[in-house]
């Protein structure tokens, strides 16, 4: 990725709160994974979450669309509280898109069918409209010509871009990225990051678990550092990288920046 600055005119943070996490705790059996997590996200924010492996970053964002259950505290997405109410869960999942580390494309469906599956069966969109919309997003991630291939025929970077397009087809208001580039070969990372930057420039609210610090510097308006299931510190990227507050953050940054 080039170090050139990007056009940030479309990135505007509003006052509207879209995600609110209050005193959230989570356990896996006896193991305390998330400890007293508090986080407020406004519309238009681009948040990068980093931290050593096992620090609970993925678990936290997976709680936001209820792929994981939390046991204490509150999570509100778009003003709706996440409980066991299946209707609320489905409603929230429609508003929140998610991109996985391992893409999780459906191997038995073509790229186009991957993109139209949820709009057709969840939003009840007519097939033609769903396909038009899918082609629109596939062009946006720059692979409209692969629409009729199967995921297995694409490279990792292409697959991840399809996964992004697939999420966008539901017109989500928030996008979650769970280490979207960790399973990719180095030369494919930038094509995925470019797509994500473009998304940010259009004002999408994004929460992104990643170790791509270049991406964080350019796009994020906030960087969160997690360790041991807690948010240790959060700051604007410039401050965060030049002047980390806690010792653990300093150690972590020195490990990932000077290798």
């Amino acid at each position: 990725m080039s170090e050139a600055a990007i056009d940030t005119s479309g990135m505007k943070v509003t006052d509207e709160v879209v995600i609110e996490i209050q005193h959230m705790h989570k356990w896996y059996g006896e193991f305390h994974v998330l400890k007293n997590v508090n986080l407020t996200v406004n519309r238009g924010e681009r948040i990068v979450i980093c931290g050593p492996s096992g620090s609970g970053k993925s678990t936290m964002i997976r709680c936001i669309n209820r792929l994981e259950e939390h046991q204490q505290g509150h999570i509100l997405v778009d003003g709706i509280e996440l409980t066991n109410d299946l209707k609320n869960i489905d409603a929230i999942r429609r508003e929140v898109g998610m991109v996985f580390q391992h893409f999780n494309l459906f191997p038995h469906l073509t790229v186009l069918e991957n993109c139209t599956l949820a709009p057709i069966w969840v939003r009840q969109t007519p097939k033609k409209d769903a396909e038009e919309q899918a082609m629109h997003f596939l062009s946006k991630v720059k692979i409209p010509d692969q629409a009729h291939k199967y995921p297995g025929q694409l490279s990792g970077g292409q697959q991840q871009r399809v996964a992004i397009a697939r999420s966008l087809c539901m017109n989500p208001r928030i996008m979650l990225f769970d280490e979207p580039t960790s399973a990719l070969d180095p030369e494919m990372i930038s094509e995925v990051l470019d797509t994500m930057i473009e998304l940010a420039q259009e004002g999408m609210t994004m929460l992104c678990v990643t170790h791509e610090m270049g991406f964080a510097r350019k796009v994020a308006n906030r960087v969160i550092f997690m360790d041991g299931g807690e948010i240790i510190e959060q700051n604007e990227p410039e401050e965060f990288f030049t002047n980390p507050q806690s010792e653990r953050t300093k150690l972590f940054l020195s490990q990932i920046l000077n290798h």
């Binding site: 005193h23 705790h25 356990w27 059996g29 006896e30 193991f31 305390h32 400890k35 007293n36 939390h70 046991q71 204490q72 505290g73 509150h74 409980t83 360790d227 041991g228 299931g229 807690e230 948010i231 240790i232 510190e233 806690s246 653990r248």
Partner: peptide, 25 residues
């Protein structure tokens, strides 16, 4: 999900607590 009174720990010092009663045993 019951609310417990949150003690305030400084960042990074939160101890691992046992899970709430209603999820083990």
């Amino acid at each position: 999900m019951t609310d417990v009174t949150e003690q305030n720990y400084p960042p990074g010092k939160h101890p691992s607590l046992p899970p709430p009663r209603n999820m083990t045993g």
